[in-house]
């Protein structure tokens, strides 16, 4: 659990299975039934092959840092939380997802570090996908 801003996410019918999983701290992703691509961001459409036939499955929650930045001067409500770590994490299933690395010393991070999913919860109970090095 981090102290970062965690507003209620904009849940839509298109992304609902992801948010239902995240509510229970599970990373649920769509996989295309046509070409088997694991799709990010979550939606009922495969941008690789054009199919709208997808299945939802629980992913491992394991990944590694593809890139990260320590934001020293955040904007808006993020200003008071600076510095914080914004990153792309490459999931074990393939996609690279925008996220925060939490509960860590920013100076200790390197690209390639192994990280694990950790959900922060918004006021309405939804889970927001972040990662920790532990």
């Amino acid at each position: 659990m981090s102290q970062l801003p965690t507003p209620n996410p904009p849940v839509t019918a298109d992304s609902l299975p992801f948010w239902e999983g995240a509510t229970d701290d599970r990373l649920v992703l769509p996989r295309c039934n046509g070409c088997a691509e694991v799709i990010w961001y979550p939606r009922h459409f495969c941008p690789r092959c054009g199919s709208a036939d997808v299945s939802w499955f629980e992913a491992s929650g394991q990944g590694s840092i593809y890139s990260f930045t320590v934001v020293e001067r955040g904007q808006g409500r993020w200003a008071e939380h600076s510095p914080y770590v914004l990153a792309y994490v490459e999931l074990a299933e393939g996609p690279r997802v925008l996220t925060n690395i939490i509960d860590t010393d920013p100076d200790s991070l390197s690209i390639g570090d192994v990280v694990h999913a950790s959900f922060d919860h918004s006021e309405d109970g939804r889970g927001v996908l972040r990662f920790t090095v532990r």
Binding site: T6, P7, P10, T12, V97
Partner: peptide
């Protein structure tokens, strides 16, 4: 919902 929650600017 997948990019606005993380302090991206």
């Amino acid at each position: 919902g997948f990019e606005n929650l993380f302090g991206l600017n």
